[in-house]
Design a protein around this nucleic acid. Sequence first.
DNA 1: AAAAAAC
Length: 499
Amino acid sequence: MSDIETTAQPVAPVQVRFADFGLSPDILRALTDQGYEHPTPIQAQAIPVLLQGRDVMGAAQTGTGKTAGFSLPIIQLLLAHANASMSPARHPVRALILAPTRELAVQVAENVAAYCKHTPLRSTVVYGGVDIKPQAAIMRGGVEIVIATPGRLLDHVEQKNISLSQVQMLVMDEADRMLDMGFLPDLQRIINLLPKQRQNLMFSATFSPEIKRLASTFLTDPVTIEVARSNATADKVTQVVYKVTEENKREAVAHILRQRELKQVIVFSNTKIGASRLARGLEQEGMKASAIHGDKTQQERMAALDAFKRGEVDVLVATDVAARGLDISDLPCVINYDLPYNAEDYVHRIGRTGRAGASGDAISIYSDKDERLLVDIEKLIKQTIKRGELEGFRPGARPASEERHGERRHPRSPEGERPRSSGYAGSGNGRPGPGPGAGTDRGPRPSGPRRDKVDPWFLKPYEPSRPGNAATTTTTPSSSSPSKPKPKLAALLGGLRKE
DNA sequence: AAAAAAC
């Protein structure tokens, strides 16, 4: 088994069309139905390679058209290799797509179903949190393509609702996420049920050593397809951070949303409770907000997502259940109510915006205690994030009593307060502003008086901690913290060995 | 630290 091979396959300079790949007319018709004619760069690279039957390691951000990139060739290959002598009644599972979260599985399944629409192939999705019986019935009826979260799939295997012995193609979507979530043992178990001879695809937004290790374990002589530089944030995303005090975080989010009259925003919270509270708080402020997290029932999760997609909800407050994979298109803005503990999650979160060529804003608020998280994030994305100034929410200011009148409009509002009058007209056009930077540039510049009392942190040139070598030494334990930087790598490798 | 995922 050779090392992972990297092709320098350039993106074709001429506009390629789906029709150029030799895909079945039934597939092309489905694409036409959806208005797709030209592949995205990852599709242009992945489709021919996959059609050759090669294993693929795809380093792709969400929003790059990854799902079609793998499902179109899968469908094509299944159609091409259809066993004519096979009884039409028998539909063994021939392609298996694994995803880390239920929502992602559902979305992949929706895409696959759409692309299969005009073919005789059947697909279904199975995931936990819902009644298993209807899923069992569908699978017993026969399907060629199964999209699944690992746990429920194993459940079905044990119940003998499904056999994986005929699987020719395996996709591990969001593989980094699956590792993070501890799915490695499940993955191993599932893979042990598959035929040795098969085509493997692995997609990952980040390219950590753990992922490479997984790839070398499960993939055979894979072609690596990398669209965006890994761990790089989409350059279409304008990022800004606002430092506020811990108690003012909720008000700050409300302020940002109100001031910019934001619609279709995802606000990320680190905790389920925090997400629920924030959503409730925003609702009390008169906004249409809803929370989505793992303590909600599957029905609630889907309802919240649907309402958001339909525009009935403007603000979706989410834990990292929604950080990856979710295909919510054209999000103008993502807000981090908390900075994520894992820097990689930052990349995934802001990947919800600025997608498919559109520009987007990623706004984060943080407080003193999150300074370290911010440093980690900047180290990972190898760029310094613009420090913005959020009027009236500066940290380090004197207690409210010493503040100028009208400086902070409504700090620390009590929970049950009535919806506020429209104190913040924002820019006035109902559309999202051009960028977070513009938000701070728009109003009159706070010249002079506001600066004197506080440490003008926002005026100091920011120094990313030791730009040269810091990146190699991961988290250098600062003397202040006892720091037991549990090496993630070791943990994961331990996991690999365990199996 | 927290979140996610099978019952």
